[in-house]
């Protein structure tokens, strides 16, 4: 399904020019929620994610974007099919509405490395470095819950960065932010991606402008199924979409209207 002609001219892509090994592989994976009646949140999803790829998951609400992210990240187990993750590949996730514990911003960031076995003192040093990366070093001692939404989302990015991830999952990270905070967070993601060309990004978004700016590959989902898996140029070229992926085309058209 993936487009043969992957574009090389957009802002962040290609992350790496040589073919990279896969970090995740899904084979006919599906996720079913509940029993009566069962809800097929994901069905028959087969794809591979390679190191350094910047993948956007798009589709209408409830199409399975977040479920796919959680499946890749390991928060969900597949009900059917298989999920393969490359060993020793660190991954972290930033959520749409990050929850911060009732403690300082620094402690919130340090919590991640500490939970993965790093000593508290070293975890705090990592947290400080991560706060510097996102420009929040001056707010480390403030209660995390007293930060603005945009700052909390940057803090969530810092929390993810402190884990030194090779794969970063972002679940609509800017959808609940005002335009200014949205730009800040997106710029930060771009900066992180620039700093590490091997960083794999997989993000869900409704913002097609953001998809164009950040992604090299677009996966369009509908009712839990992958309907299109193309390079960003192919996806937005229109003709291909119209010919082969009618629903995806309508989705894109709707966004631009």
């Amino acid at each position: 399904m993936r487009g043969a002609a992957r574009t090389r001219d957009a802002h962040l892509k290609p992350a790496v020019s040589t073919p990279q090994p896969p970090v995740f592989r899904l084979a006919r994976a599906g996720v079913v929620f509940g029993r009566v009646p069962p809800l097929n949140a994901l069905a028959e999803v087969s794809l591979a994610v390679h190191a350094g790829e910047r993948i956007a998951l798009i589709g209408a609400n409830g199409c399975g974007k977040s479920t796919l992210l959680r499946l890749l990240h390991g928060l969900l187990m597949p009900s059917v099919g298989e999920v393969w993750r490359a060993p020793r590949v660190a991954h972290a996730m930033v959520f749409q509405r990050p929850h911060m514990l009732r403690t300082s911003a620094l402690n919130n960031v340090a919590m991640g490395p500490w939970l993965r076995g790093v000593r508290w003192r070293e975890a705090k040093a990592l947290a400080l470095a991560a706060l510097q990366r996102v420009g929040l070093e001056g707010l480390g001692q403030r209660p995390a819950s007293k930060l603005s939404s945009g700052q909390q989302q940057r803090l969530a990015l810092a929390r993810a960065c402190a884990l030194s991830p090779q794969v970063l999952f972002l679940d609509e990270p800017t959808s609940s932010l005002d335009p200014h905070a949205k730009r800040e967070v997106e710029a930060l993601v771009q900066q992180l991606a620039r700093e590490d060309p091997y960083l794999t990004l997989v993000f869900a978004s409704h913002n097609l402008g953001q998809v164009k700016r950040l992604a090299s590959r677009v996966i369009y989902l509908e009712q839990g199924r992958v309907l299109a898996d193309l390079s960003v140029a192919d996806f937005f070229s229109g003709q291909l979409l119209q010919t082969h992926y009618g629903q995806a085309h309508l989705f894109v058209k709707g966004e631009f209207v």
């Binding site: 509405r97 929850h99 009732r102 930060l147 603005s148 939404s149 005002d178």
Partner: peptide
């Protein structure tokens, strides 16, 4: 009175 841990919706946040 204490803000909850989750990010407040846009417009309700405390800007610094």
């Amino acid at each position: 009175q204490e803000p909850v841990g989750c990010a407040a919706p846009p417009g309700l946040e405390m800007r610094t």
